[in-house]
Design a protein around this nucleic acid. Structure first.
Length: 302
DNA sequence: CAAAGTTCCTGCGAGC
DNA sequence: TGCTCGCAGGAACTTT
């Protein structure tokens, strides 16, 4: 479930085994994910040290040391169904077995979607699995990262200082689209996806159908709703990251899985459930906006 | 059947 | 009038 909190959870899980480690080998098992994988990817990764593992929006960024060609960044996106898992590198020769219980589906089917494997000097083996292959991996020179087409137009991080009500109001002031669509637009704010947009709008008591520009008053200043929305976005993301971290720890101890956790949503995927707002008699509704499901309460979200 | 994401394409309206 | 630009909305990618 890769929106910002999930990607951040994955980053925190991978960082201990990746940061400072040297990539001793890489297995590239197919030529492409969403796009072709980098040219000579395995050769270019081999022997490189991972300086740090970062995140921008829903992208993971592994900083690679200078290997003659200058420092580079390995950009990774999980798409809809991507996940990483960590296995201990088996000292014995031959293919190490998967840790029992990692997948509920048979091992053969799980391995069918293991597309990239990184062997690390830390003794960990990191496997990228992605059935739908909407994910992506790219390698770009460190100096070109911010100007890269994927990064260039990204809005501010929702948990950073730049994302405040004043910014949000100005960003949507001329937008005739719905609030739902505006928040999903990574140019407005980077990292929200379908789940957390529904959750944030519910918490702010704002209708997903409201016109985005209504968050700004006639002078372009933020409305009270804009202030509530910024706080709701930050709250829901922080809570999800916290929950993901604790779930991750449980899973890591049990089976080494990363990027998989259960979460409790107030409206998302809760059609017909009673609205959780105290005193509200409404039901959670499901509708489709821009081809995506939106969950909301008609009564208390205005 | 519907699905957590993003890019690309088309069509529309505004403005020059 | 006709062209360009930007925006909004939808299709497409794929597997379970």
């Amino acid at each position: 479930m890769p929106e910002l909190p999930e990607v951040e959870t994955v980053r925190r899980g991978l960082a201990p085994v990746m940061e400072g480690a040297v990539i001793s080998g890489a297995e590239i098992r197919r030529p492409d994910l969403r796009w072709p994988l980098p040219e000579r990817m395995a050769e270019r990764l081999e022997g490189r040290r991972v300086i740090g593992l970062g995140r921008r929006a829903k992208y993971l960024t592994a900083d690679l040391d200078d290997a003659g060609a200058g420092p580079e960044v390995l950009i990774m996106h999980l798409g809809m169904s991507g996940s990483f898992r960590i296995d201990k590198e088996d000292a014995a020769p031959g293919e190490a077995p998967l840790t029992p219980g990692v997948f509920e589906i048979p091992r053969s089917r799980a391995e069918a979607h293991d597309h990239v494997v990184l062997h690390l000097s830390s003794g960990a083996r990191i496997t990228y699995n992605d059935p739908r292959r909407f994910g992506a991996m790219l390698m770009v020179p460190r100096a070109e990262l911010e100007a890269h087409p994927l990064f260039r137009d990204l809005g501010p991080e929702p948990l950073g200082n730049a994302f405040d009500a004043g910014y949000l109001a100005s960003a949507v002031a001329r937008r005739a689209t719905s609030l739902k669509a505006a928040l999903l637009d990574q140019k407005v704010v980077a990292g929200l996806g379908n789940i957390y947009v529904s959750e944030a709008l519910y918490r702010a008591h704002l209708s997903p159908e409201r016109i985005a520009s209504s968050l700004a008053n006639t002078k372009g200043r933020p409305t009270a709703g804009a202030v509530r929305l910024v706080e709701a976005v930050r709250d829901v993301l922080n809570e999800a990251i916290t929950a993901g971290g604790s779930t991750l720890r449980d899973h890591a101890q049990v089976d080494g899985t990363l990027g998989y956790f259960q979460h409790r949503f107030r409206v998302y995927d809760r059609e017909d459930a009673p609205c959780p707002t105290p005193g509200c008699r409404g039901l959670v509704r499901r509708m489709v906006q821009n081809g995506r499901a939106t969950f909301y309460c008609k009564i208390c979200q205005k």
